[in-house]
Design a protein around this nucleic acid. Structure first.
Lengths: 196, 196
DNA sequence: CGGGGCATGTAACCTGTTACATGATTAG
DNA sequence: CTAATCATGTAACAGGTTACATGCCCCG
């Protein structure tokens, strides 16, 4: 969906080969967009066919290293795309399905899994906060830098939310039950979210 | 990935036809898992082939209405799956790509899009809060109900986060710029998130 | 008898994942 | 020479989306 434009952005930030892009996607874009090297090669070929980027073979280095640069048409396309309206794509969160399933069939030991995830999210949050303190000093007023800080803050908000959520989930799942309850009681009539 | 198990859960809550399931997915599961009717039919056929559900044609109603019920093996499979460990699947958020692109090529009018989204998230948040007050009275101690409440709260946390984020983004994007800045200045060297 | 909603599907396509294939350079 | 790393790809598949096809029943 937005892979081509993510690549254009990355190439504007720095012209690179497919291999470099694959490595950089693991670093700076990793937590809000990912792509395997196969996808990247496939997409770069399309971008070139569309006339948005241009490749030149770098003879100096290793064999067959193709460096891509963004052309004017690509820059134009990127600017067009940035302002294009798109609805937020709905969530698709497996864990919620699990919780609902647990509610339907009764306790399944889900709390271990949630505890494991809580630890993961705490670790990730700590990492982001470290990066924030390292790379974003209080007094930066450059627009581009403030936007990049904002993107990092989104990651922080997200991980905080998951920690909060995991703790609430554990509070419910770890509660001692009155009786070791059978399969599934009267779990019909889901009042759940939405409707209206 | 978890569509088969989402279907099993929904069918345990209430045996239904594919058509009904498609309608219910639009209601109670809509905000954390979606499926088109084509997917649902495809998947129900697989579930039946696997011996997890059983269909019976309902002659009384409209022609060819196939009602599915979960078999013991399906219930077993669902319990197994609930406790199965899986890592949280990484984010894939188009808007972040847009912000980064904006940072790379300069202002593109992104604030209109963000303002539009803020309104959407505020509306969704209000809707969830209405549902919460309507369906979840303070004194409910049934485990299943508390879990369903938790899932709704996740939606509320999520929408609150997006509102907060959108407001921060607008604060930066609406800022008056010193000069109407050219294309892209020295936006190399992305310090961005991750790396560790 | 014709249109609209109920109900079930098929086919084609796009994106993303996994596995495999190939060659060139460099370090030991 | 061999193994690791750099670097580019192909092929097959799985999940999800869009468009299209089909038939029944009820209402006007």
């Amino acid at each position: 969906m937005s892979l081509p434009h993510a690549l254009l952005t990355a190439l504007i930030e720095r012209p690179s080969s497919g291999f470099d892009l694959a490595a950089r996607f693991d670093k700076s874009m990793a937590y809000f967009w990912q792509a395997s090297h196969q996808q990247i090669y496939r997409e770069l070929a399309r971008l070139e066919e569309a006339g948005w980027v241009q490749s030149s073979v770098d003879e100096s280095g290793r064999g067959g290293r193709k460096v891509y640069e963004v052309l004017a048409a690509g820059r134009e396309e990127l600017r067009r795309w940035v302002a294009e309206p798109t609805d937020p794509r709905p969530l698709r969160e497996e864990l919620m399905v699990r919780l609902r399933a647990d509610a339907a069939v009764g306790p399944c030991g889900l709390q271990h899994e949630i505890a494991r995830r809580l630890a993961l999210h705490q670790a990730q949050l700590a990492e982001y906060q470290t990066i924030e303190q390292r790379d974003f000093a209080p007094g930066n007023d450059h627009r581009a830098q403030r936007l990049q800080h904002l993107v990092l803050q989104a990651g922080i908000l997200m991980e905080s939310m998951w920690c909060e959520f995991s703790e609430r989930a554990l509070a419910i799942l770890n509660e001692p039950e009155p009786e070791a309850g059978a399969g599934s009681p009267a779990a019909d009539q889901t009042p759940g979210p939405a409707s209206s």
